[in-house]
Design a protein around this nucleic acid. Structure first.
Lengths: 148, 148
DNA sequence: CGAATGTCTATAGAAATAGTAGAGTTACAC
DNA sequence: GTGTAACTCTACTATTTCTATAGACATTCG
């Protein structure tokens, strides 16, 4: 299970992706639109900012905006920032590798072999899907509706 | 990340799979062989017993044994028992479905679409891999050694 | 009988999760 | 240049989950 926090982060990013690239969106607006506790969302966006995903403007007329194009922000990248390692075992993590104390010899650990396949499959999906992908279908639906 | 408990469960099952089908293996032996805290392992095996994965014999000469062939026990099955749902979102769980309060309309939830793919990929691996698979390569290595 | 083994329930410390609170900083509008 | 509306940062808390540990009990073999 991914955390609620990660789900909030992804939803918030889709809002930013939907907005004009140069128009900051206020935390309050994002929170209201996605039903996210405002104070909690503050922390999340701040975290994303520190990791170079979004930028912010302070003061009146301030808010958040994407720091790079939506099609370059992957689900995997965001999950790593918010939830930590993608891998199901510490000894399979790319970003936070840690040896398992109990298994002697990773080459021989069958549990590890199986979960390595899980990790690969998961990463394949998460790093090939971007925030733009998550927004696009809605646009398509919108266009369809407008053309109908 | 899967829990330590799940890793212990899988390791314990490989021990049982490696043993003679009619020879119960004592908790202490499994614990010692896999470096698992004994009292913790008791709970795990009891849990697996309640879910019909293993059987036990009490008293002297007692212990645990597999209730069905190792090649019919999947990783996914064990993970569900020990760690709960495989799905990354409650609204994607087969065994413990729960609606997400925040997204209105699952058909339109793009986050859900992406994680549905993750869940599919994960299940494909976890339910096609069995305890027998986790034990086999060791046997192969053993045979190879003996034949060398 | 008695010792060895599994059964079951309760408890506890540590960490993670999901927020909440509040003081501080910045920048636009007037 | 002041006020106010926004983001920034740190700390705190309640709840749950994880990782065990403890101990009384039940069963079976010799």
């Amino acid at each position: 299970m991914i955390t609620q926090k990660a789900k909030y982060a992804l939803r918030a990013l889709t809002v930013l992706a939907d907005a004009d690239a140069d128009e900051p969106v206020m935390i309050s607006d994002i929170a209201a639109q996605q039903k996210i506790p405002k104070k909690f969302l503050e922390q999340i966006l701040l975290d994303l900012k520190h990791h170079g995903v979004v930028a912010s403007r302070r003061g009146k007329q301030g808010g958040y905006l994407l720091l790079k194009p939506a099609h370059t922000i992957t689900f995997g990248e965001i999950l790593r920032i918010i939830d930590g390692p993608i891998a199901p075992l510490p000894c399979l993590s790319i970003t936070a590798y840690r040896r398992c104390d109990d298994c002697d010899g990773e080459q021989n650990c069958q549990i590890r072999h199986v979960f390595a396949k899980v990790a690969d499959a998961t990463r394949k999906v998460l790093f090939s899907t971007t925030i733009a992908d998550a927004v696009a279908p809605t646009h398509t639906a919108e266009v369809t509706r407008l053309l109908a």
